[in-house]
Design a binder for these strands. Structure first.
Lengths: 203, 203
DNA sequence: CGCTTTAGAATACGACTGTATCTCAAAGAG
DNA sequence: CTCTTTGAGATACAGTCGTATTCTAAAGCG
């Protein structure tokens, strides 16, 4: 066997470049050639790792989903429940350059999925994973009553806020206060005796 | 002046065809030629009414926004506040074929707007209109406390639910119960003030 | 009536698309 | 070493893209 290479690592390298491209220039600037250029490869090289563009997009969508799940898993579990939930949600919002890139990619894929069954299946799986993690967390934090419904509401709220932050970055700060206000409403009483996390000053 | 035609009506005809195309096949199936075919015109005819594709997209985005605002304005204002709010939100969710088409177009434009300032400005204006209408309605319904924050939360929640409904139609029913649960949480107590003032017409 | 302006279709153009095929250097196996 | 398989780049091809230009037919106005 001649010269060989870690194929999966190469795929991730290309997938990462694709996600960067989606976040910076939008999904319809993604072509085999632009992705290759962003990855520092030739178009022919990209073709060695993805036989079709659709396969490449599906891979990148899964990669983006894994990233969100991994980052959510990394949230400090020792935080007070309310802050922990806020931290979980912040991992999905475009609060800095890196998260903005991922949020832009996630939402672009989500809209694309409305007309592409393969991407839709990936999105649903990512949603299911996040929903389960959130539900489990809510139950362990004492919000077992309608945990799964609250989890879905939180997911929808986060997606909606992220979407708007992308095209209205000037409302960024305001939307974070909206998030806090909505969380206060959705999670009525912190069961822990911890001092209530300072709600944002409304006004 | 020779043969003339209602230019604005022609533009709306083409814009309507564009929105249909976006909802049925996605924004990246939109080209001057496909829009022309969907409108029953030739590509050359479309060019007479929109000098560039970007101008055509901007027009369609405004058209879609106007439709939502108009439909929200048409919600029966005599309904009990809680049902009225639910009805307002349902005008933006893909609950039937027509609304699904509009929701798909709205979300496609929203994501597109993340990288196209002109579309972003249109989206922000539509958001501002809806937000103001919702806020006014909430205040008149006795939820004046944090009306504008609640309005933004409701908008984000609706967008997030609509997005997910598009690629997960099988979760449709479930997501409607999530909506009701979230509304219960966001609008805590039925407004006590007895003389329920007729909510203003929206828009 | 002819003249002129318009609607609308057809065509032209260069650029870009996804994908298939070809070339060539490099590196492990014998 | 040679042989052979792979990575990676280059090129080819048919199709579509947005847009500019050209054409035909029709209709209002003198």
């Amino acid at each position: 066997m001649p010269r060989t290479v870690d194929r999966e690592e190469q795929r991730r390298h290309i997938g990462t470049a694709l996600l960067r491209l989606v976040s910076e220039r939008g999904l319809d600037e993604v072509s085999v050639r632009t992705v290759a250029a962003a990855a520092g490869r030739s178009a022919g090289a990209v073709q060695k790792y993805f036989r079709t563009k659709e396969e490449m997009l599906a891979f990148a969508a899964e990669l983006a989903g894994e990233r969100v799940e991994r980052r959510m898993a990394g949230v400090d579990a020792s935080l007070p429940p309310r802050q922990a939930l806020r931290a979980l949600i912040l991992t999905t919002l475009p609060v800095d350059a890196e998260r903005r890139a991922e949020a832009a990619a996630q939402l672009a894929f989500a809209v694309h999925a409305a007309h592409h069954p393969r991407l839709a299946a990936i999105r649903r799986q990512v949603d299911a994973d996040i929903r389960q993690a959130l539900t489990a967390w809510l139950e362990s934090a004492g919000h077992g009553a309608h945990a799964s419904a609250v989890a879905d509401a939180v997911i929808a709220l986060s997606d909606g806020l992220a979407l708007r932050m992308l095209y209205a970055p000037q409302e960024h700060e305001h939307l974070l206060t909206v998030l806090d206000h909505a969380l206060d409403a959705l999670l009525p009483d912190p069961p822990a005796p911890a001092p209530a996390p300072a709600p944002p000053t409304m006004g």
